[in-house]
Nucleic acid binder design. Structure first.
Lengths: 224, 224
DNA sequence: GGGTGTGAAAGCCTTCACAGCA
DNA sequence: TGCTGTGAAGGCTTTCACACCC
């Protein structure tokens, strides 16, 4: 089913930022960060080059954030970085819980890329007695029954689901009941969540199958 | 830059299958597999329910594969499965090389989900002497210098890049030079590849940032 | 001159709604 | 009657092209 949600909420002075644009903002931000401090301004052309899109798209996208460019010059790198970080909510931390500490969950727990970017892994949870109590870095794996407490204690904002597929929906339901409104799902299954919850998914098997489709039929971007 | 590719190749009797449809086929296939053998037919309504989309979309998507439904009845599950598997290239194996055996690469190497679904991990490659020579399952990590030989020997079809960002473009270039035409990129960087190469990416930091955007602004699907 | 900001056009994708067949 | 297959409509997204400002 999955009925059409009542659309549009994210606004700024009346203009909603399109989903497609939101998905590119992190790429632009990364490109800006790579420029370094000896580059005071960038043109849409340069940003486009390093983000792998075209210049018109960059200008449109940035115009949704507001008009931070200067005609004839380009965009002030530092200023644009600051606005982008603010738009992406990167002025604060968003504590993460990883549920399901198998191969993938453990790798995510050890992966440094989260913490230093504003998404500290604040808790690990698993249902198996073999795993509960183990430590990863300075975190002890807690039991799935305590999920609600964990979410409250650690002020969890984002739930990462790395359980087997059959457990994923129940975990999502518990996360949501505990107040989590953002979920990243690695389990190979479709999750149903209420409209006020943001859901993103990463499905490795699906990615492989998309690739082998194009391997057979000849590529057409295949890009996200 | 990234100029518009000459579009459209994947055809079937003249009708190209849209990218958006291709990305959903794996989900439909998974839904079909979950139905089990005591369900001979499904309606678009049922398939839609379990795939998390709406029924009109299912019908349109399936119509691109050809007309395998029966009016008044629905779709023959087994027949549809077979056609879908064929379309997705799942009637053969596509050997995979994982390049970069850090946290994530190692987790992917241990992850069982690939091999049993037609994407056997046939080789592991890394640039660090500390890692080369280690074994994961029955695979020994080989040195990055041997990438071209590895690709040839193992008939690699898909390259998975799990290196640090700075190494990723060079790895992609080598994979492509060695004949690989499908790449799944986990490195947090934009890759440039020629149009005949299919590229998909998984970027955890980007996913988190998209989620925190919607956490701040109120969700609007956020879905892929 | 150089490069942004943005209406307008074009292209995809989704949804509707219903003809048509089992 | 029930459900598929599909033109047509509608909505997003991308791209164009140029007015406008530094």
């Amino acid at each position: 089913m999955n009925e059409p949600y009542p659309r549009a909420v994210a606004e700024r002075g009346g203009k909603r930022i399109p989903d497609a644009t939101v998905a590119r903002l992190p790429i632009y931000l990364r490109s800006l960060l790579e420029l370094g401090p000896q580059t005071p301004t960038v043109s849409s052309e340069q940003l486009a080059e390093s983000a792998g899109v075209n210049a018109a798209k960059v200008r449109k996208d940035l115009s949704y954030l507001g008009s931070y460019g200067t005609r004839g010059v380009g965009y002030d790198v530092e200023y644009l970085q600051a606005h982008m970080r603010r738009a992406l909510g990167m002025t604060q931390d968003w504590p993460v819980v990883i549920v399901g500490i198998g191969n993938l969950g453990a790798a995510l727990a050890n992966y440094g890329g989260f913490g230093n970017r504003g998404y500290p892994v604040a808790a690990l949870v698993d249902a198996s007695p073999d795993v509960v109590g183990r430590t990863f870095g300075d975190l002890v794996v807690r039991h799935a029954d305590e999920l609600a407490e964990v979410v409250a204690e650690e002020h969890i904002a984002i739930g990462v689901i790395a359980t087997p597929a059959p457990a994923a929906q129940a975990v999502a339901d518990e996360l949501i009941a505990a107040g989590v409104r953002s979920i990243l799902n690695f389990a190979p299954t479709v999750l149903t969540v209420p409209p006020e919850v943001s859901l993103r998914k990463v499905d490795l098997a699906v990615e492989m199958q998309i690739l082998s489709f194009y391997q057979q039929h000849g590529p057409t971007s295949a890009a996200e």
